[in-house]
Amino acid sequence: MRMRPVLIFDGDCGFCTTSVGVVQRLVRPRCEAVAWQHADLASLGVTAERAGYEALWVTPDGRVYGGVQAVAKTLLSAGGLWAVVGAVLTLPPVRWAAHGVYRLVADHRGRLPGGRAACAVPARAEASRGSCPRPFT
């Protein structure tokens, strides 16, 4: 069993990659962050389709939270004021509004500014073969 939660994100999305990097530096969540293209999705209990659709938070015991719930879990894991923000994101009606904002951003993430794509870093067989999948672009 894993000891730490895993935050799964779309490493082929510059906006997502940059966002996770900023979160790791500023928020410092207590988790492992991994691009879904470089993760062993089967062992995490998620599909490529779901991982390409939304960020995912996988607990050490295998529970999976997606979208804004994954964001809330990430913030909660950091503690302090970030945990307060994460807790607020779990409360209705904030949760409902946050879900709408999350979907709006996620659906248009290809048009948002961002950094390098994780596919530029060969870490898996697909990357080394030069065929990093982009299922939801």
Rank of each mutant, 00 (worst) to 15 (best):
M1V: 09
M1Y: 06
R2V: 06
M3W: 09
M3L: 14
V6G: 12
L7R: 10
L7G: 13
I8Y: 13
I8Q: 12
F9L: 11
G11R: 12
C13Y: 14
C13N: 11
G14R: 09
C16D: 13
C16K: 13
C16Q: 13
C16V: 13
T17A: 15
V22K: 12
V23N: 13
V23C: 14
V23P: 15
Q24V: 09
Q24C: 07
Q24E: 15
Q24F: 05
R25G: 06
V27K: 12
R28V: 06
R28L: 11
P29K: 05
P29D: 07
R30K: 15
E32R: 14
E32P: 01
A33V: 05
V34W: 06
V34C: 09
V34E: 12
A35V: 12
W36H: 14
W36K: 10
Q37K: 05
H38Q: 09
D40V: 02
D40Y: 00
L41W: 07
L41E: 09
A42K: 06
A42F: 02
S43N: 00
S43W: 00
L44W: 04
L44I: 05
G45M: 04
G45V: 05
V46P: 03
V46F: 02
T47M: 05
E49D: 15
R50V: 13
A51C: 10
G52R: 11
G52I: 08
E54H: 09
E54V: 12
E54S: 14
A55H: 02
W57C: 07
W57H: 07
V58F: 07
P60F: 05
G62T: 10
R63Q: 07
G66R: 08
G67I: 03
G67N: 04
G67S: 03
V68S: 14
Q69W: 10
A70M: 08
V71L: 11
L76R: 06
L76S: 02
S77C: 08
A78K: 09
G80I: 11
L81N: 06
A83S: 14
V84W: 08
V85S: 01
V85P: 01
V85I: 08
A87R: 14
A87W: 11
V88E: 03
L89C: 02
T90I: 01
P92A: 01
P93E: 01
V94P: 07
W96Y: 10
W96A: 14
A97R: 04
A97S: 02
A97C: 08
A98Q: 01
A98E: 00
H99S: 15
G100I: 01
R103A: 06
R103K: 12
V105P: 04
A106Y: 00
H108L: 05
R109E: 12
R109D: 12
R109A: 13
G110W: 08
L112G: 06
P113H: 06
G115Y: 05
R116G: 04
A118V: 06
C119P: 00
C119K: 00
V121S: 10
P122D: 05
R124K: 04
A125E: 14
E126Q: 10
A127V: 07
S128R: 15
R129A: 13
R129S: 07
S131K: 15
P133G: 08
R134C: 01
P135H: 04
F136M: 14
